[in-house]
Amino acid sequence: MAILTIRNLTVRFATSTGSFTAVDGIDVRVDKGEVLAIVGESGSGKSVSMLAAMGLLPDTATVTADEMTFDGKDLLRMSPKERRKIIGREITMIFQEPIASLNPSFTTGYQIEEVLRYNAGLSKKAARARALELFRQVGIPDPEEKLKAYPHQMSGGQCQRVMIAMAIATGPRLLIADEPTTALDVTIQKQILDLLMELQEKSGMALILITHDMGVVAETADRVQVQYKGKKMEEADVLSLFEAPKHPYTRALLSALPENATGDRLPTVASFLEGEVNR
């Protein structure tokens, strides 16, 4: 059963040279307990469509959609107050740059307790205890000490663990992870992906993973949606997508992976789309 349904989403940005369409009629559906990967290159609108669902786009953006519902509730027509009860509590999000996502002026403990007090309604004391519990759960070494640490005193991987702890603090039913491991080393990436999958499996929350990395898709997703220039190219379960990609763009992306190189040259996406890319 679908937890988030978006139909015909369009996002336009007003720019000095006129309107720019970043997302062009995209449908997104994610079921309860499902891992959906949205994959695309820069400019594919993969982040913008999810920021639109979260209501996090700036005023220059115009968002229209035929339908945007979370668990049967209409996100488009609800009041901002009602929406805030869902965003940050039932739908949470983590971002690409973990160190930049945290406030450098406050300790990580203060920041996660803030979430617990305002979004989960805990008392100061309860928030402190729960914060420690969450830090343990996401595998932060030496959690008591780390609650007192500032973001710059921690590594990128640890900061992402803090972000994940904050994102699961309210027991969300949908977590949106926007390129959560792109800024991290490959061994750390593996740890973070394993952690996300473990949390997803235990809690049964739905997970939307936005990524450009086909390897990450292969190792995490149940279902995959491929986007290109604001449009959806293909949607399939993960096995069918890698086994028999239907859309030429998906085929091009897969064959552009260096590990799939046959012979000396890599086929490029441009050779599939006849100069559509990188004009």
Partner: peptide, 12 residues
């Protein structure tokens, strides 16, 4: 071991 692979058998 940490490098994600896109091998179809592994996905299966």
């Amino acid at each position: 071991a940490a490098t994600p692979i896109t091998d179809v058998e592994a996905i299966r």
